[in-house]
Amino acid sequence: MRRNSLPLTLHLLLTFLFLYGPIVVLVVLSFNASGLPTVWGGFSLKWYATLFANKKMLYPTLNTVVVATVATLVATVFGTLLAMGIERMRPSAKIDAILFMPMIIPDIVFAVALLGFYTAIKFTLGLHSIIIAHIVFCIAFVCAVVRTRLNGFDHALVEASIDLGASRLTTFRRVTLPIIAPGVVAGAMISFTLSFDEFVIAFFTAGPSSSSQTLPMLIYSMIRFGVTPEINALGTCIIGFSFLLVLLAQRFNRQGTN
């Protein structure tokens, strides 16, 4: 947009305000010394200090990191393999629909279904059942991202590598993977952020034990007694972390397209 028109600029500003206004409020309040949302008591890092001193935070944070890491690793491997397999097949709208399902199905429906399924097969609930649930929807996201990368991948490259004496595995390692790597990394980062702040599915599939509580679940339980400045501080940390990941993912994906 080279020509600046006032209504359009205004529209843009309003959109940004609507999207990011609440986040800005959260971030600002996390630095508010007074602790009250209506009174600005000056800049302070004290809520961050109480946050990091809070022992209750430690295990849910660890749980979340474990769930997100394991789910991301497994989903990235399987999602990539799935994408490669699908791209080799004849295009099919039905298969595409099945692949997209875990992405578009409402979390609450997916969560209830999983809980029912786990109960039906008498599966003990805990961190592992959250991980499995997260793997399922993360595979769909990884697959979708890697597929856009594979789109336009010249299969002759694989044949050229084999023609020059490489095995299938070497061809994958030295030709296919480096070419689709930006998509794989981007898919992994999206998976990590999605799993990291996922609440509904984790809440349903965590089981009764508090040892499998994740960070979003902890925040939910804390918020029942009102939004404390401590939660604002935690939220700010998570936002910063997610923002960093998304930024990295985009940089990786762009690197490959050029």
């Binding site: 010249d154 002759a156 044949e159 084999i162 023609d163």
Partner: peptide, 20 residues
């Protein structure tokens, strides 16, 4: 005899150069 073991090489129509 598999393609990778043949003393025969191919130049592809798309050239199939490894872009990376």
């Amino acid at each position: 005899i598999p393609a990778r073991r043949r003393p025969v090489n191919m130049m592809f129509q798309s050239y199939a150069l490894f872009p990376h």
